Every structure is written in C-alpha cells, then in structure tokens.
Amino acid sequence: MNNLAVVAHAAEDLRIEDIGAPAPRPDEAVVDIAYGGICGSDLHYWRHGAAGASVLREPMILGHEVSGVVCVAAADGTGPAVGTPVAVHPLTAHGDGRTPWPAAHPNLAPASTYLGSAMHLPHTQGAFARRVALPARMLHALPAGLDLETAALAEPAAVAWHGVQRAGDVRGLRVVVIGAGPIGQLVAAVAQRAGASSVIVTDLQQQPRDIAEARGIRSIDARAESEISELHADVVIESSGTVPGLSAAVSAAARGGTVVMLGLQRGGEVPAPMATAITRELTLRGSFRFGAEFDEVIAALADGSLDVRGIISHVLPVDDALDAFARAADPASSCKVLIDFGREA
C-alpha cells in the first residue's frame, strides 16, 4: 500500500502524495495511522499558507489530531508494543535558553515544536499519512473499548479540557461557551462532565447549535447580543478566536466572573471592551494547548463520561482528503471532519 500523505506546499496548494516508507530513529515507533482530525490550523495552512506567525517555507505534512496502531516498536525499547492502539500527544517541549517558563507547564515552553507546524525551519512534519514514525513518548495507549475513530478527538478534547481547567472548579456554576465549532462543542462537553449547573453555547450557524442541543445544551444565535448580555455567566469560555466573540464573552460574564480566552486571536492589537472587564472585576485568563491532561481525557472518552456525540460529522478516505478539507472549512455544514487513512486490519 502506498504511504499516502496530505502535504501543504503553499496557499491553496494541498496535495495527496506518496511519501515512501518512514525511517524511524531508535526512540521512534512506526504507527499505522487510522484517523486524523482536521484542525483550524490545518485549514489555515491550506487556505493561506500560514497559521498565524507560522508561515510555510517548505512542503509540510499536515495533521496533529491522530490515532492509530503501533506496527513497529521503538528500537530502544521505549513506548508501546506492536499492536497497541494509541492516541498521539503532538507536543515536544523546548526552552530557548533565555526565556523562563514553568517546568510544570510544558505547553508554555517558548521554543516547543508541534506536529504539523511551520513555526520552525525545518518544519515539524505532521502525521496525516498512512504510516508515520513518531517519538515513542508521544504515544498513549488506549484503554479497551475506546475505538480509534473516537480516539482521534483526544487532542482537541485535551485543548478543551485545559481551557475548562483554566477557569477553576466549575461545579454548580453557569458556563457559557462562545463559538460552537469542534473546540467549543468539546468545551461544552467537558464543562457538562465537570458538573456545571448549566452550559450554553453561542454560534452564528444553526447546525452547530443543533449538535449542542442534541446533547442537552442550550444554544443561542450569536447575533442575539441583548440575550447574550443578559446571561450573567459565572464562567465564559471564548472558543471562536474572533474579535466579536471576545466582545461577546465579556458581555456575557457576570460581575466578578471569569473569561477564559481559548480561541486564538489574530496577531497584533485586538479591540476588546476593557472598561466593562474592569468595572465588572472580571478575571481574564489565557489558555494555550494542554499539558498533562491527555491521559485523563483518554480515560473520559473511554468510559463515556465525556459526551462527544455528534461532534464527528464526516469521515472521508485519504484519497478524498481535498474534499474533507473543503467540508471542514464550511462550519454551516460540518463539525469535526476526520480523514480515514485506511489502516489494514
């Protein structure tokens, strides 16, 4: 079988290519990739040739939300054995030798690499391929009963999990999630699991609101500004990464409440209603990627306590990856879109 991969060459230049057999280092295992979830950053590389400050300067395999099965164990004896189903933690924490960062929070290391990222040169190649060599330390064994398709949600669910944790204990609190795309849906699911007394999502599109409603989550049209301003939420998690979304998050927060800024805003200055944040004594917290939560997320997916029903909207074969990207780019008709890499049984 050809080792087909999804490779971004430049803006609007996405190719499905045979990259040949992987050549693992001693501390790397070879993984038969089963499923890969298309992330917003993957869409940015495809559409714009860049994701924020990370600009494509050479061809790069996309993808960091993946699951699969180990087919060649690491030669140094580390990591899972052959036949182990795994989810992949895509971060490698690195310092830059001058910028301090808390060792307990590897997601804040200033010179880290992430699978499928063009932040550094050479780029960090991603995992959207049928077979990929990956550091054994990235591979987290899946519990019995967790299927590989659902396991592909582990990485974005960990991002959501971290965002909710940044708000503190949400038990008995009113939580509002701004933006009901895949991350917003997962944030709402995590907040439900964490015991929030009510969870409400906002979105411009009807389909994501319907997906949330099917899991018992109230939804509001994001254009209903007056209704949003009357929510008085204890915790608001901004998941859209948009300027209007940030303004709505501040508007929806109760006096003394907390706003978690999870959606990545554009670079440079961003307007925000800071006078409202000040006079309401809001706590504003950033949230970036995740750290040690990955195994907790995998366990919650396995036991079903994290309700992800309806979040995977489409699964397309790797041969149709271009169509998969087009679907993922349309929030009115899709949620999380997976690529099926056709792992041999």
Rank of each mutant, 00 (worst) to 15 (best):
A53C: 06
L43M: 06
R25P: 10
E28M: 13
V7L: 04
Y35T: 15
A21S: 13
I38P: 01
I16S: 09
S41H: 06
I61K: 07
R25I: 01
A29G: 12
Y45E: 03
H48S: 06
R57L: 01
L56V: 08
A5E: 03
D27Q: 12
A51S: 15
A8S: 12
P22F: 09
P26G: 05
A51F: 15
P26Y: 00
G63H: 03
I16E: 05
A23M: 06
S54Q: 13
G68C: 08
L43R: 13
A23H: 14
A11Y: 00
S67Q: 07
H44R: 14
A23T: 09
P24K: 03
A11V: 09
E65P: 02
L62D: 04
P59K: 06
R47F: 01
A53K: 15
A34E: 05
C39H: 09
A8M: 09
E12F: 09
E58I: 08
M1A: 14
M60S: 04
L14K: 00
D13L: 02
G68R: 13
P26A: 10
G40I: 10
D27L: 04
S41D: 07
P59W: 07
I38W: 07
A23K: 14
A10E: 07
W46R: 15
E58W: 14
D32H: 11
I38M: 05
D13R: 12
E12S: 11
M1T: 13
V7I: 13
R57D: 10
P26T: 04
Y45C: 05
E65A: 00
A53L: 15
A23V: 15
